[in-house]
Amino acid sequence: MAATVERRTWDVLVVLTAPPHTTDALTTVLRLAQAVLERERTIRVWACGYNTMLTQSSLGETKPADLRDPATPAPTAGALIRGLLTAYKGRFSWIVCTACSAERGARDHIAEVRLRSDARLAATVAAAHRTLYIGGA
């Protein structure tokens, strides 16, 4: 299949494969995204592997309570991602790989993310000035 040519070029694409809840890879990516966005630039994250589970609608907005402080809600990763997508609409994008999602039964994602087949990875890389690949899956 020929690569689809996108109309815009993003400043940065992060391909994130390292699983969440294991290292601080997602934390570092969110921090980097914040810094790029504060510089009025654009950044897109292609979420692979178990990162596809972070944006499932079923996870809701808040995590199960900290039993030491149940009155203080803690946002889910999905809520954090949605917050970035809303605050920086047009400059931040979160793509969920449909192959990884299917492999993990990660369905019903929040509306703000984009679903994309892994057959479009090359096109997505081509649509960024810089690709940062984070392995560790």
């Binding site: 400043d11 940065v12 921090r31 980097l32 914040q34 810094a35 790029v36 504060e38 510089r39 630039r41 810089r130 940062l132 690949y133 984070i134 392995g135």
Partner: peptide
């Protein structure tokens, strides 16, 4: 330093980034 510098370096033209 902080993430701001990392972002600036990442965005410089001609930069190849390799992440381990």
């Amino acid at each position: 330093t902080g993430m701001g510098d990392l972002a600036d370096w990442l965005l410089e033209p001609g930069t190849r980034v390799v992440w381990h």
